[in-house]
């Protein structure tokens, strides 16, 4: 089935892209990897006059680590998986991107497109939440930064203004002694959206107690979420069986899932508990 007609523009710089975006306003659809955007147009859920492709802006593909890790919005999942800079600073995000769809999807889909689509079932998003990442946003008035926690606003909605573009994701270098874990659990097949995705970072002190923890959850609320109550329960505690069980229950309580082919709401909540518990147990065991 063909797409509705539109005009295609692929400027070579971010400044030009921002100009097109400002000028076209609501009539323009920003395209990154194009996966979701093409599907939305094919289903006639989007009928833009103009498609603004970011594919020709080299600067947006860059992945760099000087201090913090910066991943350009147009870096593909596959590039992130392969990147030595990512492996050195935040392998958790590489692991998460490695679970997105299938190889060709990872070759086409971008991290920027993934988070801007703000699908609750995003696999990288929980990892970004657990890594305390920030969105680097370019707009007519320059650049601003926003913690990912504030970036996801509601079902398929972000904090991006109509004249802004996501330029990069910035991930701070984790503190020494940080353990991180990721799991994408699907109830059906190996290529499916998650029943639940759990990503966590736990900073342990010398005695092995949890100094602080960050837990990101996907597919269990209208957006990717953090399990803040569970994080607070863990802070300053030894990772005992009770602490882990309490935190796992608190994480499950933080969810507000809906039901679909990957599981009922109740099942997703229960799987949140199981997988938060399992990942914490695994961290405690090392």
């Amino acid at each position: 089935m063909s797409l509705p007609r539109f005009e295609y523009r692929a400027p070579g710089t971010l400044a030009d892209a921002l100009a097109v975006r400002r000028e076209a306003g609501e009539d323009a659809l920003v395209m990154a990897g194009g996966l979701t955007t093409v599907i939305l147009m094919r289903e006639r859920l989007a009928r833009p006059r103009l498609v603004l492709s970011l594919s020709e802006i080299e600067a947006l593909r860059r992945i760099e680590a000087n201090g913090a890790l910066s991943i350009g919005a147009m870096a593909t999942h596959a590039e992130i998986v392969r990147s030595p800079a990512v492996a050195a600073v935040a392998p958790l995000i590489a692991e998460a991107c490695g679970h997105v769809g299938s190889p060709a999807i990872r070759n086409m889909g971008t991290l920027g497109g993934n988070v801007c689509h703000a699908d609750s079932a995003s696999d990288p998003a929980p990892a970004l939440l657990a890594l305390d990442a920030e969105a680097v946003i370019a707009g007519p008035r320059g650049e601003r930064r926003l913690p990912m926690t504030g970036f996801f606003q509601g079902t398929l909605t972000t904090a991006l203004g109509g004249d802004e573009l996501l330029a990069a994701i910035r991930i701070p270098r984790p503190a020494a002694g940080t353990a991180s874990r990721f799991v994408k659990y699907t109830a059906t097949t190996a290529e499916a959206f998650a029943t639940v995705t759990v990503a966590m970072t736990v900073v342990k002190d010398a005695a092995g107690a949890c100094r602080s923890a960050r837990i990101g959850l996907g597919s269990v609320a209208s957006t990717p979420i953090r399990a803040t109550a569970a994080e607070s329960l863990l802070a300053g505690r030894r990772l005992t069986r009770e602490a882990i069980d309490e935190a796992a229950r608190a994480a499950a309580d933080a969810t507000s899932p809906s039901s679909n082919n990957q599981g009922s709401a109740g099942y997703r909540r229960e799987m949140t508990r199981v997988w938060v518990r399992r990942l914490l147990e695994d961290i405690a065991a090392r």
């Binding site: 097949t189 190996a190 290529e191 959206f193 679909n260 082919n261």
Partner: peptide
């Protein structure tokens, strides 16, 4: 899945058949 006569997962994204890893 058919809810009151309406198919709710009419796509390969939502109706999952086994893959090479399954």
């Amino acid at each position: 899945l058919v809810a009151d006569g309406i198919v709710t997962n009419a796509s390969f994204a939502e109706y999952k058949i086994p893959t090479s890893l399954d």
